Each structure stands twice: as C-alpha cells, then as structure tokens.
Amino acid sequence: MQISLVIPVFNEEATIARALDRVLVQRDAVHEVLVCDNNSTDRTRAIVEEYAAHLPIRVIDVPVQGTVHARNAGFDAATGEIIARIDADALIEPGWFDAVASFFEAADEDVAAVTGAMIHFDMPRFRFDPFVRYYVDDPAERKRCEPVQFATIVGSNMAIRRKAWMSVRGAVNTAPGIWEDVDLAWALVESGYRTMLSPAMAAQVSGRRLLDPPRAYYRYTRSVVTTVRERGRADLQLAARVHVVLSMVNYFVRYFPARTWDPVERRYDWRLLRLEREARPIP
C-alpha cells in the first residue's frame, strides 16, 4: 500500500527538521513526501531540501496563502492510494506508517479517513485533553487498541483514501478563516463516508496555540463558527457557539500552566510569563 505524506509549511524553520527526522527513520514505509510551501520567508525550504538526498521529497510552491490551499495542493499532487498528513511540528511515533497501512487494510470501504491519537510534547499533560484518553505510551499496547468511531479528523495527524479525497474535492471549502480539517470531515460525512480514530497511529504535536494571547485564541476558536457558516450547516450553529465558549473556558484553565511550562526542563518556571509570544496565524 503506497502512502503519500503531505506537510503544509509556513515559516517552520524551528520545527520542520524534527518532523522530517521522524519520517526519515520510517523512510522505507513512505512512498513520497510532499512539502507544500505556503510562502515561507525563513529557512524552511532550505532545511527541507537538505533531506532530499535521504527521502523522496517534493516541494510544492503554493502562492495562495492559507493552510487549506497548501493542503489541497498536496492532496491533489499525491500519487499514493493513501494520503497521510501531518503538521510541520508533529512528531510521528515509531510504526506510524505501518499503523496507517494496517488501519486501511482492515477498514471497510466506507471508512474514508482516520485521525490518530495525539499528545502535546511541549505542554504539561492535561488529563482532560480530548485525545489524551486515546494516547497510549506503550507501543506494544498501542498496537492492541481498537480503532473507534470519531466525529472529525485532525490535520496534524490524519490519513485519507485518495479516491475519497477525489470524490469530495469539489465539495471542500477554501474560505479564509475556516478549520479546513473539520470542513473536510463534514464533506466526507455528507457524502456518505465515515471517519475514525486509531490509537495505534500516534503522534506528539505542539500545543503552541495555547500560548497565543486571549484575543488571538478567541479569533482562532471562532473559526468553527465560520466553518459552520461556510459549510451551510445551520443545524450546527448553536453547537459551534457552545464550542467557542467551552474552548475559551478550557483555554483559561490551561493558560498559566501552559505559559509557565518549560518543555526542556519539564518543570514550571514562572519567569516564562514575562516572555512576549507572537500569535500563530489563523489557518
């Protein structure tokens, strides 16, 4: 089973090498790696090109700004029967590609996409994180965990059948400010597909979005309302607004632990509160 890996990037010089190092260890299991450069102005591209001698990498220039455009360009260019996707700060666990292949080999044909278990590598472990309950530290035990039905897919750790992508390609939105992964999940469900979560397909991801100032995080989480509107899902408007409220409560519960956590020393340091943080761009 050929698996193409798509990684959208925008000024990711601080993270992309670590992500590709994890892929490099599993290079025999990946058909191709498509890095979709969304107008990076730092050393991201140069770093990616250093891996070209060791990985089957293609760099795709995506001039229209936005994660959704970078993702679409990568998915469209992928030639594998399975299209996997991670973010530039995602660290896939050993056996990740094997877990993707095993999942789709066993899944019914109406299962179009899968998302994996995730944990923040740069944050204290919050037991109320929605994905922590599925993340298993022991790789042997992780393999024994059964996939579960899941309502959405998460772009930082996911895979989709290429034929399913092609069938909904014209139905996905490209409006600015949407959650493109949630929109894709809804497009799949509306077309009669199912989505699932596989604990065996584990990755560590960054919780850097939690370091955004409150106003910036509010703009980010309100993207779900924009996604509902652009999707034409009037039935989900109330749920989307409730989601925004709960997300902000969750954010403020985590605010001080996240901002004072030193991921290198693995301890809290109140001096980190004095650091000025630049807000992440909205997808």
Score class of each variant (00 low, 15 high):
Met158Gly: 05
Pro63Gln: 12
Ser223Ile: 02
Ala185Gln: 04
Arg274Gln: 13
Leu184Thr: 06
Pro8Glu: 06
Ile16Val: 09
Met201Ala: 02
Glu141Pro: 02
Ile57Gln: 00
Val62Ile: 11
Ile60Cys: 05
Gln65Val: 12
Met158Cys: 15
Val224Leu: 14
Cys145Met: 13
Ala140Glu: 10
Arg274Asn: 04
Asn11Met: 00
Val205Ala: 13
Ala77Asn: 00
Ala84Pro: 10
Val189Asn: 11
Asp42Gln: 02
Glu141Ala: 13
Gly116Lys: 03
Arg162Tyr: 08
Arg144Lys: 14
Met166Asn: 06
Gly95Leu: 10
Asp262Met: 11
Asp21Gly: 10
Asn38Glu: 01
Met166Tyr: 01
Leu211Arg: 06
Gly177Phe: 04
Ala240Trp: 11
Ala151Val: 14
Gly192Thr: 01
Ala171Cys: 04
Gln65Lys: 15
Val9Cys: 14
Phe104Thr: 08
Lys143Met: 09
Ala70Gln: 00
Pro283Asp: 09
Ala202Met: 03
Asn11Ile: 00
Leu55Gln: 07
Thr41Gln: 10
Ala70Val: 00
Thr174Val: 13
Met123Arg: 15
Met1Arg: 14
Met1Glu: 05
Gly170Trp: 11
Glu12Lys: 10
Glu109Ile: 11
Asn11Gly: 05
Val6Ser: 03
Trp179Arg: 07
Ala239His: 11
Arg222Cys: 15
Met201Trp: 01
Ala234Glu: 06
Asp108Ala: 13
Pro147Gly: 07
Val136Asp: 07
Phe10Pro: 00
Arg259Pro: 11
Gly232Met: 12
Arg58Tyr: 05
Arg274Tyr: 09
Ile86His: 08
Pro147Asp: 02
Ser102Asp: 10
Arg280Gly: 03
Ala175His: 07
Ile86Ala: 00
Asp76Ile: 07
Met201Val: 03
Asp122Gly: 13
Val172Asp: 04
Val245Lys: 09
Ala107Gln: 04
Arg58Gln: 11
Asp42Leu: 01
Val205Gln: 14
Arg209Leu: 11
Tyr217Arg: 03
Arg231Val: 07
Val25Gln: 05
Ser191Ala: 14
Trp96Gly: 04
Ser247Lys: 13
Val23Arg: 15
Ala29Cys: 06
Met166Cys: 09
Val25His: 14
Gly155Thr: 06
Glu276Cys: 02
Ser223Cys: 11
Ala151Glu: 09
Ala200Asn: 03
Asn250Cys: 10
Glu146Val: 12
Phe131Ile: 02
Gly80Cys: 05
Met196Arg: 12
Arg142Leu: 08
Glu105Asn: 15
Pro147Glu: 05
Arg161Ser: 02
Glu230Val: 13
Ala77Glu: 02
Val25Pro: 02
Val59Ile: 14
Val68Pro: 00
Asp61Ile: 08
Trp96Ile: 02
Glu13Pro: 08
Glu109Phe: 12
Arg274Pro: 04
His243Thr: 09
Asp87Trp: 05
Gly116Pro: 06
Glu146Arg: 13
Thr221Ile: 03
Thr174Ser: 13
